[in-house]
Design a protein around this nucleic acid. Structure first.
Length: 835
RNA sequence: GCGAGAGUGGCGGAAUGGCAUACGCGGCGGACUUAGGAUCCGCCGGGGCGACCCGUGUGGGUUCGAAUCCCACCUCUCGCACCA
């Protein structure tokens, strides 16, 4: 079947694609005066692009093209996030080098994207697996190292047994590997970390300066950063040389503490019991607890367990001795790794205490309690507000007052004090994988960890025969010519760091590189970046809310501190496009194997119809279910539009562009058609600034087309009618063009337009065109619609109400009743309230 | 469990205090045709012969008037989930 018999859209598309390319229409202007940086998240090249990409890029391209028409100098680049695990997996499965697999996928995807005429300046393309890109990853790493933001530490880290590599916290959400869904284990390894926690406060506060970021993304980031205010409280234990500190957000309940709980991975857990009769039991418990996977460990349904150390610590206020337990509901990586157990006022502590028969002590009296319950009588913890009791000198304070007064008191006594704790952890960036950026560090037995001198960058990833099968340590360790190196400091034999970087490094600064992508001397020229950045609109999926977008902001801030940027936030506006779901309502994804390839659709219906269909399905931010029928409708619409343009070309060409449209004289249908075109125009201009709901614009254009098609030839005979019609059709073409660029450009040419439609000018909405001279009034009697009638738009209240009352469909409802109130809404309705 | 968002014809959706279902898909009927999965025209929320009545997840409220605002509940989607 060839659905597009009639207009040959394939030929039109080819014609314009070729012409734009020859003329270099998508090139970025050299010195922007009024800049607009429109950026879509770059792609990981795995095979061809899929529908989700197609949607993302279509939305972005509508904005980019529209901005050009509006006279902006536009930067609209694209690139490839080309390092990563799937390349290795494919390589292992098919015996192809990850590089070849990646580069071939890029070729295929880029070809498809070029077919779509996405108006990227391909001369600025970046490919992260090329040395000319990743050498700047290494440069950045050295910068971070110099600023004390990159460091090594031995830590319990997320280890994915499937991918055989460590993962960042953001890649192991919920204890599940983001790539293979395997249950993540904890392993103690020495790894490279980036000190993103040093920026926690700025990352949090910066969100308030981003009014054009979606609220849900900001909420997710706030939650992820997880600032919490509370206090550290020092207990005392003779065996521990340091302060035995806990962190709590409820210092007001301090006197309700009946036990302390320490995380099993905490080094002091073992120290406490060493040499005692509890040692064996505690050791056994710690072993069991640490073997549990993260999901199991943090499952809220599992009953909490733990073991008594037999040791106690001294309460800072009461001086009582409080038993210390080891419990795996306490996380070693949050706060101090030790918590105070207040069963009466914390659900988790309550559950734990009940299980092990630990007492509860009520120290907050809820409003409405007639008697103070005894701890053992509580059915559940009281976590609500109340007044402090059983708390000595603090009795009588509200919980809120206590939260302030107790920490202050502690600070004055040297027993702790007010503290802020963050949920955010440092960013683990080393990976034991082959296909990534080598970390530019050298390990020397004499000098320790030494930086690779900047002049020696890039440290090239060996691309010869490498056994890249994951084996739990970096494959590069087994490449002697890579690993063996002279220490840059002392010249002795030393070893290169064999780990590679997390690919989220690559995507944290690519937005800056686009401003100066071929710079061989520096990561970028700050002057070029000043011209284009920050990004004016960043479009991508919601899945990057806490991973990429946090790193992206973090590195931008670091570079600002380095003096290379004069702004802190990389993108002033963020837009999340909706996912493309399959017929079953599942998100299309490679792993589910339910991808519908755009290629077939593009060949069948053409690029323009496919783009219009994407715009028309739903607002750009909403998920859509993929339905082929919608594309057929879009094609029908384009075909009718093109037919109309060709049929009326002569009449329209007779009117020079910019000819003023006389106030009256045109036929009603022409005027209505023109009105609808200007409505579409106004709507499009509004949409691009707000919700990108292009579905309403397409619908406006369809209405306009329906009207314009009904215009008869005689209506175009007179100058006034012809001028109005020509203006209408030209506005129609302008509004359509960003969505259907080839058809739009063709129409523009057919109608005698000069140059490219994408050079503008973007037409102005003519207020006179929006005006209507006759409106239909609805007449309600006590809120129920009883009739309608047409009236001149200029008609006054008295006249309209009189007409309304006299209406045959209305009069009977007024019979024998008294109109007690008349509501008049100009140009809309009359409501006669009767009694 | 907590947080955010959403519930409108057979379907995607429009309308954010003023005529609910625009626009499109799909379906039905017709025209043209050797043919139609092309194109064009007409019809399509439910009930009723009808005047009319009912109808935007459910129940209440505010209002002359509510899909839209408020309260409670139900359902779905997304995010977070022992963070002390």
């Amino acid at each position: 079947m060839t659905p597009n018999n009639g207009e040959d859209f394939a030929a039109v598309e080819q014609k314009w694609r070729r012409r734009w390319e020859e003329r270099g229409d998508d090139a970025t202007p050299a010195s922007p005066r009024r800049k607009s940086y429109c950026l879509e998240m770059f792609a990981y090249p795995s095979g061809d692009i899929h529908m989700g990409h197609f949607r993302n890029y279509s939305v972005g391209d509508v904005v980019a093209r529209l901005r050009r028409m509006q006279g902006y100098d536009v930067l609209h680049p694209f690139g490839w996030d080309a390092f990563g695990l799937p390349a290795e997996e494919a390589a292992i499965k098919r015996g192809i080098h990850p590089r070849d697999w990646t580069l071939r996928n890029i070729e295929v995807s880029r070809e498809t994207m070029k077919t779509c005429s996405l108006s990227y300046d391909w001369d600025r393309e970046v490919v992260t697996c090329r040395p000319d890109y990743y050498r700047w990853n290494q440069w950045l790493f050295l910068l971070l190292h110099r600023r004390g933001l990159a460091y090594r530490k031995v830590a319990l880290v997320n280890w994915c047994p499937g991918c055989k590599t460590v993962l960042a916290n953001e890649q192991a959400e919920g204890g599940v590997c983001w790539k293979c869904d395997a249950a993540v284990l904890k392993r103690e390894l020495e790894q490279w970390f980036l000190r993103i926690t040093a920026y926690a406060d700025r990352l949090l506060k910066g969100l308030d300066l981003l009014p054009d970021w979606p609220e849900d993304v900001k909420a997710m980031q706030r939650n992820w950063i997880g600032r919490s205010e509370g206090a550290t409280v020092t207990f005392r234990n003779e065996r521990i040389p340091h302060a035995f500190e806990v962190f709590t957000t409820r210092p007001d309940t301090l006197c309700g503490v009946t036990f302390l709980a320490i995380a099993p991975e905490h080094p002091w857990a073992r120290l406490l019991v060493a040499g005692t009769d509890r040692e064996a039991a505690v050791e056994e418990y710690i072993g069991t607890a640490l073997r549990r996977s993260e999901i199991e460990r943090t499952s809220t349904v599992r009953e909490k367990d733990g073991v008594d150390t037999g040791r106690t610590a001294v309460h800072p206020i009461t001086g009582e001795r409080i038993p210390i337990w080891v419990a795996d509901y306490v996380l070693g990586s949050y706060g101090t790794g030790i918590v105070m157990g207040v069963p009466a006022h914390d659900e988790r502590d309550f559950a734990f205490a009940r299980r092990y028969g630990l007492p509860a002590r009520v120290v907050i009296r809820a409003e409405g309690w007639t008697a103070l319950p005894r701890g053992e009588d509580l059915a559940e913890a009281w976590t609500g507000p109340g007044v402090m009791v059983n708390s000595g000198i603090f009795d009588g304070n509200t919980d809120e007052e206590g939260r302030l007064k107790v920490p202050t008191w502690l600070r004055n006594k040297g027993l702790g004090g007010p503290t802020v704790t963050w949920r955010l952890r440092d960013w683990l960036v080393s990976r034991q994988r082959y296909w990534g950026t080598p970390i530019p560090m050298i390990h020397c037995t004499e000098c320790g960890v030494v930086e690779v001198p900047e002049a020696d960058l890039p440290v090239l990833l060996p691309e010869g025969v490498v056994n890249w099968l994951p084996k739990g340590r970096s494959p590069l360790e087994d490449v002697p010519e890579f690993v063996r190196v002279a220490c840059p400091r002392c010249g002795r034999d030393a070893r290169r760091d064999a780990d590679t970087m997390d690919t989220f490094i690559d995507s944290s600064w690519y937005h800056l590189r686009y401003a100066d992508p071929r710079n061989a001397e520096a990561i970028f020229d700050p002057e070029r970046v000043r011209e284009w950045l920050p990004v004016d609109l960043y479009i991508g999926g919601r899945e990057h809310a806490t991973g990429h977008l946090l790193y992206f902001r973090f590195l931008t801030m670091v570079l600002q501190d380095e003096g290379l940027l004069d702004f802190a936030e990389p993108a002033t506006r963020l837009f999340n496009h909706g996912y493309v779901l399959d017929a079953a309502g599942k998100k299309m994804s490679k792993s589910l194997g339910n991808l519908v390839e755009p290629k077939e659709m593009l060949e069948r219906y053409g690029v323009d119809a496919s783009r219009v269909a994407m715009c028309f399905f739903a607002p750009s931010g909403d998920p859509i279910v993929w339905k082929e029928e919608g594309v057929r409708g879009a094609l029908r619409f384009l075909r009718r539009a093109m037919d109309l343009v060709r049929a009326r070309a002569a009449e329209v060409r007779a009117v020079a562009p910019g000819t003023p449209v006389p106030a009256g004289g045109a036929d009603a249908r022409v005027r209505e058609g023109r009105r609808l075109c200007h409505e579409a125009l106004a709507n499009m201009s509004r949409c691009v600034e707000s919700d990108l709901a292009f579905n309403t614009v397409v619908s406006d254009l369809m209405k306009a087309l329906n009207e314009l098609e009904s215009v008869e030839a005689p209506a175009l005979a007179a100058d006034a009618g012809r001028a109005a019609f020509a203006d209408a059709l030209r506005v129609f073409v302008a509004v359509l063009s960003p969505m259907a660029p080839h058809a739009g450009e063709e129409m523009h040419e057919v109608l005698g337009g000069e140059g490219s439609v994408f050079r503008g000018p973007w037409p102005d909405v003519d207020p006179a065109a929006l005006a209507v001279d006759e409106v239909e009034y609805a007449v309600q009697v006590s809120g129920k619609v009883r009739g309608r009638f047409p009236a001149p738009a200029s008609a006054g209240e008295a006249e309209v109400v009189a007409l309304a009352r006299a209406l045959p469909a209305v009069a009977p409802h007024l019979e024998g009743r008294q109109v007690v109130k008349v509501v008049f809404v100009p140009k809309r309705l009359v409501n006669l309230v009767v009694r």
